[in-house]
Amino acid sequence: MSEAYRLIGTPRFGGILVVSDHASNRVPDDIDLGIAPELLDQHIAVDIGVSAIGELMARRPGFAAFQGNVSRLVCDFNRDEHLPTVVPIASDGHAISGNALDHAGHEARLARFFRPYHAALEALLANTPQALILSLHSFTPQLASSDEPRPWHVGVLYNNDDRAAGIAIPMLAAEGLNVGDQLPYSGKLLNATMNRHAEADGRPYLGIEVRQDLITTAQGQAEWAERLARIANQVAVAIT
């Protein structure tokens, strides 16, 4: 584990790595975001439920989990490095005043969190090639800044490589789930980590977004860990 990331389990050659950029709401003691503390428990700060699901999946043979170890408000790992949203100054209507940094401050965040996270993920994938990368996120049922509900139980996201998505979508639908194909948003617009570490090198990946109210409890997290492990294994076999 480092300040920027943590690795759960031991990655195996030809295994499945569960990658969660937004698994933590941790804010280092020397960083003041300038927000109300309760916001750190909301979706703007963390992908609710994914840390526990990743841990449960990493207990299974052939699985490991690589997770971001600071809040996405400290540093958003699922963004391109050159974009200002790597250190967001606002999220879903909330100003993040402590992120109004000068160039040196912004560069310091990148050097401290963003670059070590991506360097470690790249090294892991290069040293221990995986049969499948499962990019695991969660989404809020409704944004505060929108009147549109998000009824999907799970979304499947991808950019140009839709190999795994095409296999997983009917599998998820067969479980009786309302499945969003490129919903609640499109992987063609927001897929930075998988663009960099999967699509750029032809590594198979499956982008999953689970609706947060389904995974706030231990029971829901266990149910989705079992489901996603089972489906990821089937996808990994089918895609090779």
Rank of each mutant, 00 (worst) to 15 (best):
Cys75Glu: 03
Trp152Met: 06
Asn99Cys: 13
Ile53Gly: 00
Ser71Pro: 06
Asp161Glu: 05
Asn99Val: 01
Asp147Gln: 10
Thr85Met: 12
Leu124Thr: 14
Glu107Trp: 01
Val154Lys: 00
Arg115Tyr: 12
Ser146Ala: 10
Ala144Val: 00
Glu81Lys: 03
Leu124Lys: 03
Val156Thr: 05
Asp102Ala: 10
Glu107Phe: 02
His137Phe: 06
Val86Thr: 09
Ala131Met: 07
His106Ser: 00
Ser146Ile: 02
Gly93Phe: 06
Ala144Arg: 15
Pro116Ala: 09
Asp162Ala: 06
Ala165Cys: 13
Ile44Trp: 12
Ala64Asn: 12
Val74Asp: 11
His103Gly: 00
Asp47Leu: 03
Pro84Tyr: 08
Asp162Ile: 03
Ile133Glu: 12
Val74His: 06
Gly155Ile: 10
Leu110Trp: 05
Ala45Gly: 01
Arg115Cys: 04
Ala144Asn: 14
Ala126Ser: 11
Gly49Val: 04
Glu81Val: 12
Gly54Glu: 09
Ile89Asp: 14
Glu122Met: 01
Arg112Ile: 04
Leu73Tyr: 08
Phe77Ile: 10
Ala108Leu: 13
Asp162Tyr: 06
Met57Val: 02
Phe139Val: 01
Ala120Asn: 07
Ser97Arg: 09
Ala90Cys: 07
Phe66Thr: 08
Ile89Ser: 11
Arg72Met: 04
Leu132Arg: 11
Ala90Asp: 13
Asn78Lys: 03
Pro141Lys: 02
Ala126Tyr: 02
Asn99Ala: 04
Val74Ile: 10
Ser146Pro: 12
Ala123Phe: 00
Val87Asp: 05
Gly54Met: 05
Ser138Asp: 08
Ala65Ser: 15
Ala131Gly: 14
